[in-house]
Amino acid sequence: MINLIIGLALAAGAPPGEQVYQQVCQACHMANAGGAVGAGRIAALAADKNLKYPEYPISVVTGGKGAMPWFRGQLTDQQIADVITYVRSHFGNNYKGIVTAAQVADSGVPAPHESER
């Protein structure tokens, strides 16, 4: 898989995780983080109690869950930290504290061994 490392200029004043959310996460979780339901379900991240402790979103974003792919190795640890900080403080979530790249490095799931394509 191609390394993302999104290198786009941030809009002035925009939180650093916002762009990662818009360019990656909202492909599934939707622009309002409301998720969706069809034959299966895409989790809503809005007003999400699972975000209380950063360890859970760190494990899901780095390691994936069900249909959701892992993003370790696709996003930098800093980008992962930024987007978790962003979601934990937006969409009706009011969790305090900034998630750091060190926390992602510490408790994240390592990227899997990719088969040659």
């Binding site: 492909a27 069809g38 034959a39 299966g40 899997p112 088969s115």
Partner: peptide
């Protein structure tokens, strides 16, 4: 059509790697 938003698949195709295989 964006496959990540497909109601009947939740994605495009299964993504195996050497470890999961």
């Amino acid at each position: 059509v964006a496959w990540s938003r497909s109601p009947f698949t939740l994605g495009c195709c299964a993504q195996w790697n050497e470890d999961t295989r």
